[in-house]
Design a protein around this nucleic acid. Structure first.
Lengths: 192, 192
DNA sequence: TCTATTTCTTGTCATTTGGCAAGATTTATC
DNA sequence: GATAAATCTTGCCAAATGACAAGAAATAGA
């Protein structure tokens, strides 16, 4: 049974009429992914975006030394959208992979674009989401500058414990901007 | 004489009709600031945004230790827009100050909002700008994680020499995420 | 021009974090 | 359940960066 609770929640702040909300919800299609699949590959252009219905995913980039840096984790209700690739139609610089079996609500660029230009509420919601993503990223980069690795880890533990629980240490480490060795020591120190 | 070259340049990729472009350009007003003025203050809500016509500015936040962290520098042609405050109507967490006498093209929220909802090209341009800002910020935070302070400094020197030339060392240092002491040493090392 | 103030440099030393490698532990596969 | 593979921990030492303070240099005001 398709329960669109995740989507309803995602748009709960948008000021849609009943009819508009239905049009928006009807624009999403449920898709399944197996653990280990890439739902977006570096170099490909994103032609859709998703909301996580169930499962756990991450996005990462490969730096000039060949290391992969995790740029985000996504759990139920989170949006999966490589904005740069999706909106600017450029090859993505990141890969998005499933860490578990997943189901996601998918919407295509064309459909999203249609909604964006025809429904004021949809574009307000979209803009707010974009701005929110920018805000979070800014907060995170200031954190990298002003806080120690330990402080950042504790903050992540408090704000998004699901990441600590589900993701492997190495991926959490690169997400926090430390080596896995260091993160292992930080963990030890904290649980003492 | 009011030469709107800066604005024309800023919207050069937008697909405006001649009439639309004129409407957009007419929405901006030239304002003057003296060196040392705050054009946005932490805690206040941004009710307008700007394009720099002439001069040099920076934005900064104050971290939990009381240090100010420079989050951006703005020279001719650059947009000055605290997105979070402007779009979400929230008190700003940053202050924007002029580092020289400045002239800027100003547009109000209400006017921008009008254009956004009435002109498809304006909202496409706005979205592209937002996505571009997100992309730059992401690139910068990945840089903080993967590169040494020296590498980041060299990169800044190549990409935006105007910042190195115009801003005081301490502000560049916090922008790069290092102490002023370290940056001073990095400079020395490079010019050897 | 002459102070006063701010900015920048430099020395010394401490702290944080990284790099590498070995071993322990957990997880996957047959 | 046994083996292989991946993940995590730990020890050792090196490199990067920070903290503090003193002095030099540049800049701003009077």
């Amino acid at each position: 049974m398709e329960d669109k609770q995740v989507l309803i929640q995602a748009f709960k702040n948008a000021k849609f009429s009943k009819n508009e909300l239905e049009k928006v919800l009807a624009s999403f299609e449920l898709v399944h992914f197996k653990k280990g699949e890439n739902i977006l590959l570096e170099g490909k252009t994103a032609k859709e975006y998703y909301y996580v219905n169930d499962g756990f995913l991450r996005s990462y980039v490969t730096d000039y030394k060949g290391n992969d840096i995790t740029t985000g984790f996504y759990s139920k209700g989170k949006i999966i959208l490589d904005m740069t690739s999706f909106f600017l139609k450029r090859p993505s610089d990141e890969t998005i992979e499933t860490l578990t079996n997943c189901t996601c609500w998918k919407i295509t660029f064309d459909r999203s674009q249609y909604l964006f230009h025809h429904y004021e509420s949809y574009r307000e919601a979209g803009r707010a989401r974009l701005v929110g993503a920018y805000f979070n990223l800014k907060k995170r980069s200031i954190g990298i500058i002003t806080k120690t690795a330990k402080e950042r880890y504790i903050e992540l533990l408090q704000d998004q414990p699901i990441i600590i629980q589900q993701a492997p240490l190495k991926q959490i480490a690169s997400y926090l901007g430390v080596t896995d060795t260091s993160l292992s020591r930080i963990r030890k120190e904290i649980t003492l």
